[in-house]
Computed example of a mutant assay.
Amino acid sequence: MTAPSTELFVHPALFYRGEEEYVDGTVPFIREGLAAGEPVAVAVPGPKLDILRSALGDAATDVRFIDMTQAGRNPGRIIPKVLRVFADAHPTSRVRIIGEPIWPDRSGVEYPACVQHEALINSAFEGRDATILCPYDEAGLSEQALTDAYATHPVVISEGRQRNSPSYAPERVVERYNEPLPIAEAAEGYAFGADELPAARYFVAERATRFGLSGVRLDDLALVVAELTTNSVVHGGGTGTVYVWAENGQVVCEVRDGGQLKDPLAGRRPSPPAQVGGRGLLLVNYLTDLVRVHTGPDGTVIRCYVDC
C-alpha cells in the first residue's frame, strides 16, 4: 500500500515474494484508486491478470487490464502505447497504474531496454498527476534487477514497508545501459546514401524473406528499414549502413550512422495528431518486438528484433 504523497508523480517499486505478497501489495493499491475515483489500469504478465481479477471480484470490471507480455513485448513502446495512452485519456483525473515490465522470463538481450524504460518513466511523467506502481518478483529476478529497481524508483516497498531509495539515479541508469552493440558475426551489410534508400530496403527484405519472415511482419520490417535509413540520411550525416541477420527465431536488423540521439525519450512520446513528421522512431518501437539503441559522439546504432 502506498502512502499519500504531495508529489504529482509517484513511482514506487513493489518487491514481492509469491502470490500472497503480490495480492497484498497490489489489490489495496487498486481499491484505493477506485475509492478515490481515479481511473486504474493494470499492465502485468497474463497469469498475474487472472490472479488480480479473481482477487478483485466485482471491482475488476472498473479496471483496465492489459497483458504486458504482449503490449510491452518491446519495452520501448510501453511509455507511449500503454502508460501515456491511458494517462492521456484521462486528462482531468489523477490516474493509478500498475506496470510490471520486468519478469523472470525476460531475456538478457531484452533486459537493458527494460531497465532503461523504468528509468525513463520518471522524466516521461514528470509533473503528471499519476502513480505508477512497478512490481518486482524478488524470488525470481536476479540481484542485479533488484539493485537496478532501487536506482530507477525513488520509493521502494518491501515487506509492507515503504522507504525512499538510497540509490535513486535514473539518468545514470540510462547511460549505464547505453551499451555498445558490436556487429554480429552473421550480419550482412549494405552501405547507403540518399540514392540507395530503395536498394537498402530491398536488401533487407530479400534476406528477411530467406530467414523465414513473411506477410505482415515482413511489411512491418520493410517500413522500419525505410524509417531508419531515411533518418540516417536526414539526421545522421547523410549516409549509413544497414545490417541484417537471423538469431534465435528472429530477424535482426540494425542501422548504423554518424548521428547522435540527444533525447533519451526519442521514440517514446506519443505524437500529437496534428504533428507533421517526427514519428519515425515511435513507429519503429510500435512495429518491432525489441529495440536496442547505442548512441554517442561516434554515432548511433539502432537494432531491431522481429519475431518470425
Rank of each mutant, 00 (worst) to 15 (best):
A145P: 14
E179R: 15
E188F: 12
Y136I: 07
R163G: 09
E159G: 09
D148N: 04
R172T: 12
P135I: 11
A184I: 00
S142E: 14
I157L: 13
L141C: 12
P180G: 10
S165Q: 08
V173T: 15
G127P: 06
A186Q: 12
P180Q: 13
E126A: 15
G127D: 06
T131M: 14
A186W: 03
P170I: 04
A145V: 15
Q162M: 11
A130E: 05
Q144M: 13
T152K: 01
H153E: 00
L133D: 06
L133G: 04
P180R: 09
V174H: 03
G140W: 12
Y136C: 04
L146D: 09
I132G: 01
E188N: 10
R176V: 02
A187I: 09
R163P: 00
T131L: 08
R161I: 01
P182F: 08
A187K: 04
E179D: 13
G127E: 12
A184T: 01
N164P: 03
Q144W: 09
S167D: 13
R161M: 10
A139S: 13
T152A: 01
A169D: 15
P135W: 04
E185P: 07
P135Y: 07
E175R: 04
A186S: 11
A169R: 11
P180L: 08
P166Q: 06
S142P: 03
R163E: 14
D129H: 02
L146W: 12
E185Q: 15
A169V: 13
Y168N: 08
C134R: 06
Y168M: 04
I183P: 02
V155N: 05
P180N: 12
E175P: 03
Y177A: 01
